[in-house]
Amino acid sequence: MTTAVFAAGAVCWRRIDGKIHVLVIHRTKYADVSLPKGKVDPGESLPQTAVREILEETGLAVSLGVPLGISRYPLASGREKIVHYWAAEVSDAAIRSSTFVPNEEVAALEWVTPRKARSYLSHAPDVEILSTFTDLLDDGISSTFAIIALRHGKALPASSWAGPDATRPLTARGVEQASSIVPTLQAFGVKRIVSSTAVRCVTTAAPLAAASGLDLRRTDLISQDAHERGEADVRKVVGKRVRSGKTAVLCSHGPVLPEILREIALATGSLSGSYLSSAADLPTGAFSIVHLSATNPSSGIISIETHEPRA
């Protein structure tokens, strides 16, 4: 049995003169036109790969938006290649900071309308991914942000801790989980980090805050203690984050996560359903990314993706 080759990339897009254009790359080695993508390096998550490969191929630093699906196709070696894609809005600052110069791998970058891109792309799987992106545009969805529900890392069992529950620390594995999730979370351009006041949550979110240069905001409103006392106010925390329109991490507890997902659905006019329960049913250190429209958050949840720690 042959092992599949995993890769990741994105439909990079921006507005030029008020119209959406997407980025295609002219590859030197293969003499073709494709979407930016590349193979996973050992130890990388797929989102981490997508951001790194886009930077290496195009010189553009991007954050990922909505997932666009997966393409599968056979390689000449007989192995299957599986490529995960996201949308990625490219800022003016990223354009100005681009370090791209033509090289042995990529001869040129070109910004074209989605219609032109469809005719330029050399491979059918790329065209299918582009079609998923244009379907979102047809639904009025372009710029997006996310609320990320993160469960704290593995903590010392309550039975092994004599102090207050809120002071229970992470285990060595929990500390590793907290560090391992940082690159994946950073791939989505986190702008705010909000944590339960419990030590196990604060310690889980701290490495991301340090790596991103962001303040770590603590609140008892999404803590397990407040939840058990009936004093939590998840709606207030979620509502503020939805109104802000900026990608945020909410680090909380297993019993509180279902309420966080329900409140996101309520705040965005989304239908309830088992998909919310599935997104909230996370192992320690895992997180669900809830993608929302930045221009019209009340239009509902666009998609949810879940990632687990590599530790």
Score class of each variant (00 low, 15 high):
A4Q: 12
V11N: 08
I16S: 15
G18A: 09
H21C: 04
V24K: 05
V33E: 10
K39M: 05
T49A: 12
L55Y: 15
E56Q: 15
E57V: 08
E57Y: 04
P67H: 01
G69L: 02
G69R: 00
S71C: 07
Y73E: 15
P74F: 00
L75T: 00
E80G: 02
K81L: 04
K81Y: 01
A93D: 13
A93R: 13
I95P: 04
I95E: 14
R96C: 03
S98E: 07
S98L: 15
V101E: 15
E104T: 12
A108L: 13
T113G: 10
K116D: 13
R118N: 14
E128D: 14
L130S: 09
S142M: 03
S142G: 04
F145T: 07
F145S: 10
A146M: 11
I148R: 02
A155H: 10
L156T: 15
W161R: 01
D165A: 12
R168L: 01
G174D: 04
A178N: 01
P183M: 10
A187H: 01
R200Q: 02
T203C: 06
T204Y: 05
A205E: 12
A206F: 09
L208R: 07
A210T: 15
L216I: 08
L221I: 06
D225A: 13
A226I: 06
A226C: 14
A226H: 04
E228P: 01
G230Y: 01
A232Y: 03
D233S: 07
V238M: 08
G239T: 10
K246G: 01
A248R: 12
A248I: 11
S252H: 10
G254Y: 09
G254M: 03
V256E: 03
L266W: 13
S270I: 00
Y275W: 07
L276Q: 02
G285C: 05
I289W: 02
V290A: 14
A294H: 00
A294P: 00
G300N: 05
I302A: 05
I304L: 02
P309A: 07
R310I: 14
A311E: 05
